[in-house]
Amino acid sequence: MRRLAVGIGAAALSLLLLALAGAAFGHSPRVLLEILVSGSIGSRFALEGTLLKSVPLLLTGLAVVIAFRAGVWNIGGEGQFIVGALAAYLTSRFGTTAALLAAAVAGALWASIASLLRVWRNAPEVLTTILLNFIAIHLLGYCVNGPLQEASGQYPQSDPVPQAAALPLLGGSSLHAGIVVALLVTLASWWLLYRTREGLRLRATGFNPSAAQYAGVDVNAQIARAMALSGAVAGLAGAIELLGVTHRLFERVAAGYGYAGIAVALLAQLHPIATIAAAAFFGALATGAGELQRSASISSSVATFGQAVVILVLILFGSMRAFAPGRDE
């Protein structure tokens, strides 16, 4: 219960701070909040936008939850998202399932580079995952300007994925079946973390690696598995965004979803089920920020600012200290 209160409090306080920041530049805080709310959940159209953005956020958030729970810093969600989208594109002609699987494998492998270097050369995964993000971005840039560029060769983007591979839309809305996949993955993550021996070992590793080692857990292997799993989920996010929304590859396909996943996971206080609410909150914030810009000309970078404030407020509430990654209550 306390964790729930902390999460809601942090979200509310960050909205308040956002409004104050707006006020500092002469925008009425009340109007600002009103637009933010109506622009994110005030209409069916806004609500669809919010849900559409929540799907990738939920998955990249889960990826971070899994890694942080194991005490490993996967900041590489962005890169894993990208290689996931790339793999999904390459395999899309074999159907949706194949594309989703390929993306998960690609994300897992990309993340495993970092865990391999950690185990083998003691290179900190915080940095290697960030470097791998940059490399993935340039790799994608190369692909959409080179081998994967659309057949007409005009724009730096790929051709659309085959219609058959695209995720089906849900009953006349712009929502796609990826939302169902994302929710299933959420449930599976919860089950894995809390109802299996693997989950127990994973959390034990994050909580106290030396104690886990002492208790017979192969910490290095455990970390490698957690990292691969985390990468797989982030890769899946890329595939779902490709097959459900963008349908084409282009340079900015990841659009910061990987990094935003960190804020999502922290707001959810590393709980898989709470991640749903956290992703919806940030999805709403991003959608509301769009409306804020359209109707009040306020820069949409307030959404980034909001993510930061949520994390800092959470730390202030003291939850983060007891709750450094991997540490369970």
Binding site: A263, F305, A308, I311, L312
Partner: peptide
């Protein structure tokens, strides 16, 4: 958080 804060 600081990176996000500064960028935003």
């Amino acid at each position: 958080a600081i990176n996000l804060l500064a960028l935003g």
